[in-house]
Design a protein around this nucleic acid. Structure first.
Length: 281
DNA sequence: CACCAGGCAAGCC
DNA sequence: GGCTTGCATGGT
């Protein structure tokens, strides 16, 4: 099996894949993580100071994984810049191995529509069922995995099909988004080139996409790092530690303070606050 | 049994 | 603009 070796500097597998940004990566008992993206299935394993990507050829790496894993970015500089106070130092120290994955646009859009008023384990279940039912099979270690389905494939589904996967009331949003994407009305290249505010206005026209889902899609798939997605956890931490008492205040404060690094700061805070809550229960 | 989960749209003011 | 309510489903 072909493997590719990369630097593990500022790159921790658990931080990156369990920080809540993605829904299709799973830890094995040995600490490795496997997942599917870009129509490719791989396993990642730490080896000393390196990370080894299994089932990854040199061309797979250059064409896809280098960008997906955001390996050309200097996270040291980002962490120094966002560590502006004790809370941020704590959060950065806790999740210092997070990298913001550059996920595929359509998958991210559909996954975050599913995420609304839902729990992370359930989001993962529904997305996995969607892939198993309608995605192309991909092999890893003799196992069959499934790629995220294309817009064209999902555009042929009805509300009842999404409902059957456990999507609940989000079924009509998913139908609408899949059909828009299949029509070519949502061009990720064009959206990525647009200024953040314009891209937001464009995405928010989709039923089922509000402020938070919109910001997550733009941050986690199109590299709009100047956004500070504000969910229930970020609302909590911004109220507790930055005296920003409402969702709108939390978002505008976060973006004012962290600027072009808002998305990184948000993810350190989210991971730190949510994991600490789990630990204290 | 309630209550919550990486929210949102619609209706109201 | 901001505030309230209903919403499918599964877990605690």
């Amino acid at each position: 099996m072909e493997t590719t070796r990369v630097s593990g500097r500022d790159f921790d597998l658990a931080h990156t894949f369990d920080c809540g940004q993605c829904f299709r990566w799973n830890a094995a008992p040995d600490g490795s993580y496997s997942g599917v993206a870009g129509g490719r299935a791989v396993r990642l394993r730490r080896d000393g100071d390196d990370v080894v990507i299994e089932n990854c050829s040199a061309s797979d790496f250059e064409e896809f994984w280098r960008g997906y894993l955001d390996l050309d970015r200097d996270y040291g500089e980002i962490k120094r810049t966002v560590a502006i106070n004790d809370i941020m130092k704590e959060a950065v120290s806790y999740g210092g191995g997070i990298r913001i994955l550059r996920q595929e646009f359509f998958e991210t859009l559909m996954s975050y529509i599913i995420s609304q008023n839902n729990s992370i384990p359930n989001i993962k279940r529904v997305v996995e069922r969607l892939c198993a039912a309608y995605g192309e099979p991909v092999e890893l270690d003799g196992d069959v995995r499934y790629a995220f389905p294309s817009p064209e494939r999902l555009a042929s589904l009805e509300e009842a099909d999404f409902r059957a996967l456990g999507a609940g009331f989000r079924d009509r949003y998913l139908v609408g988004a899949a059909r828009l994407a299949a029509e070519g009305a949502l061009d990720p290249v064009r959206l990525a080139e647009m200024p953040t505010a314009e891209a937001r206005a464009e995405l928010m026209k989709i039923k089922g996409v509000g402020n938070k889902v919109c910001d997550c899609v733009l941050l986690f798939s199109l590299g709009k790092f100047d956004l500070f997605p504000t969910d229930t956890w970020i609302k909590k931490v911004m109220a507790e530690s930055f005296s920003a008492g409402s969702v709108s205040a939390a978002k505008s404060e976060g973006e004012r303070i962290f600027g072009r690094y808002s998305g990184f700061a948000q993810q350190y805070l989210f991971y730190w606050r949510r994991e600490n809550d789990k630990a204290n229960k």
